[in-house]
Every structure is written in C-alpha cells, then in structure tokens.
Simulated assay, not measured.
Amino acid sequence: MKIISWNIDSLNAALTSDSNRALLTREILYNLKNEEPDIIAIQETKLPMGGPSKKHKEILDENFKGYDYAWLTSKEPARKGYAGTMFLYKKSITPDITYPVIGAPTTMDFEGRIITMEMENFYLINVYTPNAGSDLKRLSDRQIWDEKFADYLCKLNEKKPVIATGDFNVAHREIDLAHPDTNHFSAGFTDEERQGFSNLLARGFIDTFRLIHGDVLGTYTWWAQRVKTSKINNSGWRIDYFIVSNSLKDKIIKSEMIDSGQRQDHAPILLEIKE
C-alpha cells in the first residue's frame, strides 16, 4: 500500500486561486496522483466550515477520478476556515472513518485536526498537530495535546496496528533541522515538544523515516515561506512524519519525501508498506 501525506497550506486556495503560489501548489497536488497512491492524507485544508463547496467537489472529481474523500473542518467555537484535514482514497478501499475527540484543551478538538480510517489490518490516522504559536503562547496546551494524542494512538494500538501521519509540528532531534543551536526556544523545537514526541515513540511507535534512512542529515519537509532563501540554502525542518506501531516495523518498504520543487513551506511525504 502506498500512502502520501501533505500539509498543503490551503486546499481551498490550491483549487480556486490563480496566484503564483496556488498554481505551484495545484501542480504538486495533481502530480501526486501520478504516484498512484492508495491514500492521500492532507492537512491544513482551510476549507469553509461546511466542507468542500460545489466547485471544490467538481475539481476534485475531475482530477482525482477513482477517489473518494472524507474531510473535517474547523467549526465554532474555533476559527472558521482554519486548520482542517482530508483523506483522498481509492474507491476500492472501504474504510470505517471516524472523527475522534481526544479531550484536547481550548478549541483544539474543534479545529478539524484528526481523521481516522479503520482498515482491515490497521488504523490510519491523519493529524495536524497544533503549533505552539508565537511567543510559545500555546505551548502548555500543546503539551496536553501531545499526551492526549499519544493516549488515543495507544488505545487504538491495543486493537490493531497504527499508522499515524501528518504535520506533527516538531523537529524531534537536532539532526531534524538545519540550525538547532538557534532554535531551542522556537515553536516546534522546544524541549517540551521534543520530549512529547519522544514519549509517544517510547509507547510503542517508530519514526519510519529514521528506521529506513538512519541518521542521514539535510533531509527536511518544511522551509519557511517568509525567508526567501530558506529552500535554496536548505535551511529546513523535518516536522512531517509517518509513525507506525512497532509491530509494523518489518513491513515498511519506503519512507521518504517527495520533491516539491521551488515551492517553500511543506513537502509531501510518502510511505510504502506491505499489506
């Protein structure tokens, strides 16, 4: 089975806008189908509260023939048109899809951050982890999220193996970003967030990229949009992951990034796993 995951930073814009950035995003999105994935997990869709519009659906149906989709958007009391997740999956797949509430603080459970697909032999979770925010204003809430999300995955793992993918908003180790020395107090690389990810792995999960590639340097999934030279200089962070239950370790075939060309922000990631 082949699964792709991507924080698209607005599926809404990618499908409907003609800005240069939207055109780049749309090209990447449509090219993902050439990989012939069984499933695409998308984060940060920024769709309206009511979900895909008629125009969105027409575009998806035209460009992803043979695929169904499931979505979750941000709703009150959270901000509208914020966060959001989506699965695109082949119509030959017939999963049981749920939208879990994990008991996260503030409005996090209303921001459209988790969709779960139950397959015959495993669970697949699409997650968009909350950012700790500017001045780390949301860090304490983020720590609670990390605990609640880990509890949720472990509960699923008691029933069948788990694959969790998405934007985890943390560079786990110093080798997961280009400039660790200057970022220890930056959102996504605080000791607290890194420890939260370590705690999750310690409860029975594996970072598939490190499993396959070891301690390789310089491979990232995100480059800051606001820094024009971030991608040219490869000043990136690896904050997007496929993690799996330990029991799936021997079934991982491939875990890697997909080239996103000159477009900064997130790059898609890919997992191939034996069924």
Rank of each mutant, 00 (worst) to 15 (best):
M1L: 11
K2V: 06
K2Y: 04
I3T: 02
D9W: 11
A13K: 10
T16I: 03
T16W: 00
S17Q: 15
S17D: 14
R21I: 15
A22L: 06
E27I: 00
N31E: 13
K33E: 12
N34V: 08
E36H: 15
E36L: 06
D38R: 07
I40F: 09
I40T: 07
E44C: 02
P48I: 11
M49R: 05
G50L: 12
G51D: 12
G51I: 09
P52S: 06
S53G: 05
S53C: 04
K54C: 02
H56S: 04
E58Q: 14
E58H: 11
E58R: 14
E62T: 09
Y67I: 10
L72T: 00
L72H: 10
T73H: 03
S74L: 04
E76Q: 11
R79W: 01
G81R: 01
Y82M: 03
G84T: 04
T85R: 10
M86R: 06
T94H: 13
P95E: 00
I97R: 01
Y99H: 14
P100S: 08
P100H: 05
P100W: 10
G103V: 07
A104T: 12
F110S: 12
I115N: 02
M117Y: 06
M117P: 03
F122H: 15
F122D: 02
I125M: 03
T129D: 01
P130H: 13
N131A: 15
G133V: 09
G133E: 04
S134K: 13
S134H: 08
S134N: 15
S134F: 02
D135F: 14
R138K: 15
L139D: 04
S140N: 14
S140D: 15
D141T: 00
Q143L: 06
D146S: 08
C154M: 09
K155I: 06
L156E: 02
E158M: 03
K159M: 04
K160H: 04
V162E: 02
A164R: 03
F168H: 09
F168M: 07
F168N: 01
F168D: 13
N169Y: 06
H172P: 14
L177Y: 13
D181S: 10
D181G: 00
D181Q: 12
D181T: 08
N183D: 03
F185M: 00
R194H: 08
Q195G: 00
L200R: 11
I206W: 08
I206H: 04
D207I: 05
D207A: 08
R210T: 03
R210N: 12
R210Q: 06
L211P: 03
H213I: 00
V216Q: 15
G218D: 15
G218M: 06
T219S: 09
T219D: 15
T221I: 01
T221M: 11
W222K: 05
A224C: 05
V227W: 11
V227E: 14
S230V: 00
N234W: 11
N234E: 05
S235Q: 13
R238H: 14
D240R: 00
Y241M: 02
Y241D: 04
F242H: 12
F242W: 07
S245Q: 04
L248T: 13
K249H: 09
I252H: 10
I253D: 07
M257G: 11
Q262W: 02
R263W: 03
Q264M: 12
D265N: 06
H266V: 01
A267F: 08
L271H: 04
E272N: 12
K274P: 00
K274H: 02
K274L: 05
